[in-house]
Amino acid sequence: MPAADDDGVTTMRFGAMACEAELTVAGRAPDRRLLDAAAAEVRRIEAAYSRYRADSVVSRINAAAGSGEPITVDEETAGLLDFAARLHAQSDGLFDITSGILRRAWDFRSGRLPEAPVLAALCARIGWHKVDWQPATRRIALTEPGMELDFGGFGKEYAADRAAAVLQAGGIASGYVNLGGDLRVIGPPADGRGWALGIQHPRDDRRTVAGIELKGGALATSGDYERYLDLDGRRYCHILDPRSGWPVQHWQSVSVIAPVCLAAGALSTIAMLKGPAAPAFLDAQRVPWLAVDTAGLPVRNGI
């Protein structure tokens, strides 16, 4: 429900993509239909790329895995597949949208670690190189049975950008979109300062490790505190290395500022996967970042 406060800031909250979504707009009260349109855009992307919906593009591609029958995808999906291909190349294979099947071995609520042979069998099916993606004809085929694509690695961030674009196209110049902690700023509030945004402490959700003012662009955080299990003093989180099938362990969280949320989210995830090489990687990508190491100490450049 949209709610406007005295400062002329209107906020609409709704649930989407398994998280709390927030649209905040400053200035003249926006048309309710515009906020609805932005929310609808988030839900459209959720429906299009959800693994859980049989009619989604992703489900159709996955259902045809190993059948030898290519699926022709729409332009938007093709753009995202191209993006995934570039992320794979630029992360030296660490960011791989075929690695979602590891989820079958990792049950974070069970309190048990997966068995090595199960992980090994799943890892054998992972690999972007086993995806036959033809950008020119927009045809895609997963060459082995049991393979799966998962757009979860950037779907939420993409939706935040698209929702922001909807608001912007509708004339909104000031506001931001927050999809479960992935933020995309449309424009600064009227006072000329940026939106004051906090970066959550990875071990205490009532504290922040840093505050920043953002006038534009996006802020995204990847952390080991979203889904995890703690066992024998070690944390096993949902960010999994596609080569071994095991969770990353070098950082508690990585936050990145980039012009768009899609880039910020992808960079923060790749940084988690890169482990000790993350600072050099992020610096080479010329983005401001802040990482919290396993001891809880922040390391940063630009934030």
Binding site: G79, P259, V260, L262, A263, L267
Partner: peptide, 13 residues
């Protein structure tokens, strides 16, 4: 990576 993201239509607004 930023460039790759920016090249997607509708992302930058």
């Amino acid at each position: 990576v930023v460039l790759a993201a920016l090249s997607l239509p509708g992302v930058l607004g």
